[in-house]
Design a protein around this nucleic acid. Structure first.
Length: 506
RNA sequence: CGGGGCGUAGCGCAGUCUGGUAGCGCACUUGAAUGGGGUUCAAGGGGUCGGAGGUUCAAAUCCUCUCGCCCCGACCA
């Protein structure tokens, strides 16, 4: 009882949000920094979470007819040069392989040797290398639509990295499709956006706003970029997923052509769409509290931890037997078509154990000691409630209600996050109101402020740039709602046909 | 690439100004006590003080150069 720390994480969110995030990641054992600049090691607890996200997405992709494939890590330099905007967009952040051998240097160390005739780029995204394959796979309208996804790692040499949110290397999926018509491709782009939104909301319990990017925020080479934007607890926006309608730009660059039913030669219409390990960062900042992360049950690395309370050595065997039987029965319960994931923690380390699991964000902690056994009960704590709020539940009741308890936690997390998003999203119509909304009281050490401003925008890149320059606020998306609303641009007062979402962003 | 901070045990830090050859807390190991909760006591293991060079009888400490990390900008999923 030495320490009187009120929260498990120091500092708290309100004290220092950025530092809180880093401490939460550390305490959660989801990931850690690696020896390589800007790259992270994903630990088992974090990888299990990512696997659950992956499996759910993968299943949903396949239900829409998408098939998985795999393409090379390396892209020949000249491939990237094929689409002008695309080159410009990614050129600044590419890792380049120039040699294929190491030799003993004069001072003893290894030095690169065997220079390549053409450098290879470590993929920052795979439109061009996949386009090359697609150009050979597609020759007739009968080959379309072509619906491919790959699970891969990509590298973007960012100047500033942040664990899970922006690492030099990250894991993601990238879907790439080719269609015979523009409308079919557009339909697919929006279909995948909807799929992402429902995964974010139903699995990650993360409410999102769907919309289109402004021209300046578009994917390099895309005709249209759609996105889902979530609000973190420091009220900044996080782009949680994107779906791009690429028109015929990449088809022309890669030579993806097909012969139509009428015999004419036409370029395909392509799309690409992706979500990444960034989602994990979003999850942390959406649900975490001052005791650490809170994992939504639908994707949690594990659902329940069973912790024996052993008072006397003679209690150990009966308590462990009780726990192992309980675990076996729990694992036989299906939660959304998959077995409940149960951990048993019998380490004899006292109360620190419970706190470890709190910081790891497991949805349900269960303690079982002789007293519970005598009453045929378990002692349960929920991660979405205070750590002090624990209740005795009869064993059979616990087994019969466990899936609804998990669903209740899932729903509770979503409702909380949705209330937060709504509480800090405002229609703002005056320029002064808008500027004060995004200006902290204390510029030295900015407090959590702002949120999402739904404000009118005339559509000019100049107004967008002015606001970005003045406030570091950008247009996160042009939402699909509110399209018929008319008003005046927040920046220049010109007439505007709709509101857009302005926010500071990650 | 600019501005600020920092590299000393696995983690968090003190010691640096005023050179004398390394310490604290947590974690770890062992033993004991405790037992519905980040418990207590005792004993113990672990460090080329980020790296290189220099000054000095002597450098974690002073000087020069480097490398890396964190925060704030610019760039971005």
């Amino acid at each position: 009882m030495g320490k009187k720390t009120k929260a498990a994480i120091t500092p708290t969110r309100s004290e220092d949000y950025t530092e809180w995030y880093q401490q939460v990641v550390k305490a959660s054992v989801l990931a850690e920094r690696s020896a390589v600049r800007g790259c992270m090691v994903i630990l088992p607890w974090g990888y299990a979470l990512w696997e659950n996200i992956m499996q759910n997405l993968d299943k949903l992709f396949k239900m829409t007819g998408v098939k998985n494939a795999y393409f090379p890590l390396f892209i020949p330099l000249h491939f990237l040069e094929k689409e002008a905007e695309h080159v410009e967009g990614f050129a600044k952040e590419c890792a380049v392989v120039t040699h294929h051998r190491l030799e003993q240097g004069p001072s003893g160390g290894l030095v690169p040797a065997g220079e390549l005739t053409e450098p290879l780029i470590v993929r920052p995204t795979s439109e061009t290398i996949i386009g090359d394959s697609f150009s050979r796979w597609v020759s007739s309208y009968r080959d379309l639509p072509l619906l491919i996804n790959q699970w891969a790692n990509v590298v973007r040499w960012e100047m500033r990295t942040r664990i899970f949110l922006r690492t030099s290397e990250f894991l993601w999926q990238e879907g790439h499709t080719v269609h015979a018509t523009q409308s079919e491709a557009e339909e697919r782009t929006l279909m995948m956006l909807d799929l992402y939104a429902s995964v974010a909301e139903e699995y990650l319990a993360m409410p999102v706003i769907k919309g289109a990017k402004s021209a300046s925020e578009r994917f390099p080479g895309a005709v249209e970029t759609y996105c889902i934007e979530a609000m973190m607890q420091d009220r900044k926006a996080l782009q949680a997923g994107t779906s791009h309608f690429l028109g015929q730009n990449f088809a022309k660059a890669s030579g993806i052509k097909f012969q139509s039913a009428s015999g004419s030669e036409e370029f395909g219409w392509t799309t690409s769409w992706g979500v990444s390990t960034r989602l994990v960062g979003g999850l942390i900042m959406t649900h975490g509290d001052d005791d650490g992360i809170i994992l939504p049950p639908r994707v949690a690395s594990a659902h329940i931890v069973l912790m024996p309370i052993i008072r006397k050595e003679t209690d150990r065997e009966p308590v462990m037997t009780y726990i192992e039987n309980l675990a076996a029965e729990l694992r036989d319960v299906a939660y959304h078509e998959a077995p409940i994931r149960v951990e048993i923690d019998d380490r004899d380390i006292g109360g620190a154990k419970g706190w470890e699991w709190i910081k790891k964000g497991i949805p349900i902690r269960v303690e079982v000691g002789p007293r519970d056994m005598a009453e045929n009960a378990v002692f349960m704590g929920r991660r979405d409630k205070s750590h002090r709020e624990k209740t005795a539940v009869k064993r059979d009741v616990f087994l019969n209600t466990i899936t609804s308890i998990l669903d209740d936690i899932q729903d509770n997390l979503f409702q909380r996050a949705k209330a937060y998003l709504e509480a800090y999203t405002h229609d703002l119509d005056s320029r002064s109101e808008f500027y004060s909304f995004f200006t902290p009281q204390n510029p030295e050490k900015p407090e959590i402020h702002g949120g999402f401003a739904k404000s009118h925008w005339c559509g000019s890149p100049e107004c967008e740039a002015t606001i970005k320059e003045d406030l570091s606020v950008t247009i996160r998306c042009i939402p699909f709602e509110h399209v018929d609303d008319t008003g005046q641009c927040i920046c220049c007062n010109a007439s505007s046909r709709q509101r857009v979402i302005f926010a500071k962003a990650y």
